[in-house]
């Protein structure tokens, strides 16, 4: 790790102010990506601004048909939260299969979506559920927020404060774990909104990051059941390929994981 200056912000305003004073600052959430990358000397921020102790970034609220998770909430707290389990059990499940116990005790929802790793789990949930990302400046729809590999709509110094999820009628998430990293080799989140809309998002599959899967959405719109997807064909074109999964395999996983997510949806 290169030398850096560590700051612990006590409020979002203070974090923003610290960011403005620094030449090359990075916000630190759970540190599950930033710290390993810094240790490998692949990132060298002049200043690291820790958001982990900011009280206003902590907590989960269920209000009517909206579940709001503050950005600094760690996965473990999401996984075990009664409101999450009641309102959107698929999110509790997603969090329970995310990384390993050490990651779940450190990693945060805000950190995950700000990083937008193409194999991260949470972007699929946000996209499928039509969530809204709240920042210190504005509200951004999930659709607009994720803009490709490791790219988001966030501007310099902008801080995610919370994610609001409309409570769906049904939702499910299933993933094939990457055998080494335990990210999603491919994961699919399916959701049926209370107005009857069907949204399906896949992570770990596309070279462009998290994506909607219109063919599966159409099939499920007509018939919400795993067998409805039997006849759907997913193209391998544009999908990721690496030593743990060919593009064809990932195309298969999009379909199989969608079927299993529908079967598991509640």
């Amino acid at each position: 790790m290169y030398q850096t200056t560590y700051h612990r912000a006590s409020s979002v305003d203070e974090a923003v102010s610290l960011f403005g004073k620094s030449s090359e600052a990075k916000f630190l959430a759970g540190g599950q990506t930033l710290l390993p990358v810094m240790k490998q000397r692949l990132a060298s921020p002049s200043d690291v601004i820790d958001l982990g102790k900011i009280k206003e970034l902590q907590g989960i609220e269920l209000s009517g048909d909206t579940l709001t998770i503050k950005a600094g909430t760690i996965y473990y707290d999401i996984m075990t939260n009664a409101d999450v389990k009641k309102a959107i059990p698929a999110i509790a499940h997603l969090t329970s299969v995310l990384g390993d116990p050490a990651v779940r005790y450190r990693g945060t929802i805000g950190g995950s979506i700000a990083n937008n790793d193409p194999a991260a789990d949470f972007p699929a949930a946000l996209l499928a559920l039509g969530a809204t990302v709240k920042t210190n400046k504005r509200s951004i729809s999930a659709e607009d927020f994720f803009q490709g590999l490791f790219t988001t709509a966030l501007e310099d110094g902008e801080i995610i404060t919370a994610v609001s999820f409309p409570v769906p009628a049904k939702a499910g998430y299933e993933k094939m774990r990457h055998p080494a990293s335990r990210f999603a080799l491919t994961g699919v989140f399916v959701a049926q909104t209370k107005s009857g809309e069907v949204r399906v998002a896949a992570t770990g599959a596309s070279q462009s990051g998290v994506m909607r899967v219109p063919a599966i959405e159409a099939a499920l719109k007509a018939n919400w059941s795993p067998s409805a997807i039997d006849g759907v064909s997913i193209s391998a074109s544009g999908l990721l390929a690496d030593i743990h999964g060919t593009a064809e395999y990932r195309a298969n996983l999009v379909k199989v994981m969608a079927q299993r997510a529908v079967a598991a949806a509640r």
Binding site: D100, P179, A180, S181, I243, H244
Partner: peptide, 28 residues
């Protein structure tokens, strides 16, 4: 089931970290 130290055709190692080289874990 899991482990394989892989090189590309030019001799560059593809599996030089635990993010790529799959070590067995207890639940495997």
């Amino acid at each position: 089931l899991l482990e394989h130290a892989i090189y590309d055709a030019n001799g560059q190692p593809v599996t030089a970290s635990f993010m790529d080289y799959a070590m067995p874990r207890a639940d495997d």
